[in-house]
Design a protein around this nucleic acid. Structure first.
Length: 269
DNA sequence: CGGGGTTCCTGGCCGC
DNA sequence: TGCGGCCAGGAACCCC
C-alpha cells in the first residue's frame, strides 16, 4: 500500500526515465478511474513531482502546461520498458516516442489516473485539500496541534485524512504514533506531544524513504525491486508481539475502519 | 462544510 | 482439493 515513502521512491526512479519523453499513444482500461490516461497523448514529460501519495508528471502540451496525476491506490505499480503484452491487471499504458512504454498495473483498481491543467486539482478532492508536506517547513508542531485540535475525531483518523499532513497511511500512522508514545484514539494534543508527533512523523517517513519503502505484499519500485523498510517496522502488523519499548503485548483495534496496532502501556491518551 | 457511512475491487488465507 | 467467507484499505462519493 504505497504511502509517501513508497511514492517518493517511485518518483525518484521515474523522473529520469520520463524527462524529455513525449507520449505518442496511450491505452486505458475501460473504467472512469483510468480513461483520462489517453489525454496525455501529445504531451512531453518535463519532470515528475509528488504531493502526498499523488505522483504529478508534468507535461508540456500544445494547450499549455498540464500534469498526469497518478494515485497508486492499494496495489498500483508503475514500470518502464518494453510494450506491455497484456497482463491481467494492466490499467493504463503510455507509448513514448523513443519506443519505450510506461505501464500502470493495479490488481484491485483502487488507483486513479487524471490529466489536468497544471496545478488544477479540483477534480481530485483529496489532492485539492491536501495538508502540508511533512518535510515542508510549514509542517510545524503548532500547525499539527492546531489542526488536530480543530476537530474532535480520533488522532489516527485525522492523520489518515491527508488534511493535517500529506502522505500518511495506515503503516506510518501506526509507526509514528507508537514512536511518539501517543494513543491512536487520542483527541487532543498539547504542545509537547504535538512536537513529539511531528518529529516522529518526519523521522519515520524519512527513514522509510532512505530504505526504499515498505514492501509487505504488492508494493514494488519502478525496477521491480522490493523496499527494505518492512524489516524495520516497530509497530504496524506486530499485534500480539511484545512492544519493543516496554515489553507489553501490542494490541489491535479498529479505528475508522482501519486495523490499528498500538501499545496499551506506553501509548497514552 | 464537517463528518459519517458506503462503495469500489480481487488475491490470499482460513476453516471445514 | 475445493470452496464459501472474510480480510486488507485510500479516497471518491452521497447524504445529513
Amino acid at each position: 500500500m504505497p504511502e509517501l515513502p513508497e511514492v517518493e521512491t517511485i518518483r525518484a526512479q521515474l523522473a529520469p526515465e520520463l524527462r524529455g519523453a513525449a507520449v505518442t499513444d496511450a491505452w486505458a482500461f475501460p473504467s472512469a478511474k483510468f480513461t483520462d490516461a489517453v489525454l496525455a497523448v501529445g504531451g512531453r514529460f518535463t519532470d515528475v513531482r509528488r504531493r502526498g501519495k499523488y505522483l504529478l508528471a508534468d507535461l508540456d502540451t500544445g494547450d499549455g502546461p498540464a500534469e498526469l496525476v497518478i494515485h497508486l491506490g492499494m496495489t498500483g505499480r508503475l514500470s518502464v520498458g518494453a510494450p506491455p503484452r497484456g497482463g491481467a491487471h494492466l490499467r493504463a499504458s503510455w507509448t513514448l516516442d523513443d519506443g519505450r512504454h510506461l505501464r500502470f498495473d493495479d490488481v484491485r483498481r483502487f488507483g486513479r489516473v487524471a490529466v489536468v491543467p497544471r496545478g488544477e486539482h479540483g477534480s481530485l478532492p483529496t489532492l485539492a485539500a491536501l495538508g502540508p508536506e511533512p518535510f515542508d517547513e510549514a509542517f510545524t508542531a503548532e500547525h499539527l496541534r492546531a489542526s488536530v485540535n480543530a476537530s474532535r475525531r480520533a488522532l489516527k483518523t485525522q492523520l489518515l485524512s491527508q488534511r493535517v499532513v500529506a502522505g500518511v497511511g495506515n503503516i506510518y500512522a501506526d509507526e509514528a504514533l507508537w514512536r511518539a508514545g501517543i494513543h491512536p484514539a487520542a483527541r487532543r494534543l498539547g504542545p509537547a506531544r504535538a512536537a513529539a508527533l511531528r518529529d516522529a512523523l518526519v523521522a519515520v517517513l524519512s527513514e522509510a524513504i532512505a530504505h526504499g519503502g515498505t514492501t509487505l505484499r504488492d508494493y514494488r519500485q519502478v525496477d521491480g525491486g522490493e523496499g527494505r523498510n518492512q524489516l524495520r517496522l516497530e509497530c504496524y502488523g506486530r499485534h500480539g508481539l511484545p512492544c519493543r519499548r516496554c515489553g507489553e503485548t501490542l494490541a489491535r483495534t479498529v479505528i475508522d475502519a482501519r486495523s490499528t496496532t498500538y501499545c496499551r502501556r506506553c501509548q497514552r491518551r
